[in-house]
Design a protein around this nucleic acid. Structure first.
Length: 284
DNA sequence: CTGATCATC
DNA sequence: GATGATCAG
């Protein structure tokens, strides 16, 4: 079974603590800024003068929806990451995707937003990060999931196949765990050429939506209010044979952090290679 | 479940 | 262009 290797992985516990401590750490930062020193006040006032007429604010603010939260990448016109929380209860219901269609997110300024026309005839399908199937308890929640802010250009066969199986696996986890939290997103991985590293990715449509080279999911399950299992998946955005072993697709926590914007605890060893699961045994 | 596409109004 | 039926993995 999937679960065995899943729970026992050493990287698993590392990421559990990383996710949990991230929020604690932010509170400490806020506490410091509540009581700034004189030097900090001088910097703040000087900074306000420097930035008097504005500045390019590229820090993605969190966007909250009925049943998911995301950070949006205005340059790539895709989410940076999408977070969700599912339980056996929230997966029940009769909400259906037949009532919904993909729409540009009205909360994203048009010049930074993807349009359906970008995807049509691009060769890439519109792939949910927070899946429609995770919002069956609420038609409104499902409607939110069809905003293009939750969508990434994804290989069609991968979307209907391997990625779909991974989403099904996440839902299955709620049978064994009281609660499952999932962070999903697109990833552009570098390649090496003549000893140098490069990043290259396709852009589609008039709005130049970025096609990721990979997709990832970070899964944290919970039992008796304790996180007891976690998995990190990084899979290429291409047709995948279910029987193929993905051990070669390894990634360090540092790479994951720098490419996704997800923040891990400061004292974590980010050079540690994440132990990717043996997908073959996972999904059967 | 995951999607696109085509006929129809 | 919107909608619903149909098709495919």
């Amino acid at each position: 079974m999937f679960l065995r290797g899943f729970v026992s992985g050493t990287a698993a516990s590392t990421v559990v603590f990383a996710v949990i401590y991230a929020s604690v750490n932010r509170k400490e930062i806020y506490r410091e800024s509540d009581n700034p020193s004189f030097e900090d006040i001088n910097k703040l006032e000087r900074g306000r003068e420097i930035l008097k007429y504005g500045f390019p604010n590229r820090g993605p603010e969190l966007m909250y929806y009925t049943n998911h939260v995301l950070a949006y990448d205005r340059a790539k016109r895709t989410p940076v990451w999408v977070a969700e929380h599912i339980t056996a209860e929230t997966l029940k219901g009769y909400a259906s995707r037949k009532y919904e269609k993909f729409l540009p997110d009205p909360r994203i300024p048009q010049m930074f937003s993807a349009q359906n026309s970008d995807y049509q005839k691009s060769g890439w399908s519109r792939g949910h990060m927070s899946p429609a199937g995770n919002h069956k308890h609420s038609q409104e929640a499902m409607k939110d999931s069809f905003f293009l802010s939750n969508i990434v250009p994804q290989n069609f066969e991968n979307n209907a196949g391997f990625w779909n199986r991974l989403e099904m696996y996440c839902r299955d986890l709620t049978k064994d765990f009281q609660s499952v939290r999932i962070i999903s997103g697109p990833l552009v991985m570098p390649y090496t050429e003549e000893g140098k590293k490069f990043i290259k990715y396709q852009i589609i449509g008039d709005n130049e939506v970025a096609v990721p080279t990979h997709l990832y999911k970070i899964i944290l399950a919970e039992r008796k209010s304790q996180p007891v299992a976690v998995g990190v998946f990084v899979i290429p955005n291409q047709p995948l044979d279910f029987s193929h072993h993905l051990s070669k697709y390894q990634i360090t926590l540092h790479q994951l952090e720098s490419r996704t914007g997800i923040k891990f605890v400061p004292n974590l060893d980010l050079s540690k290679t994440v132990n990717l699961c043996d997908i073959h045994s996972c999904l059967i």
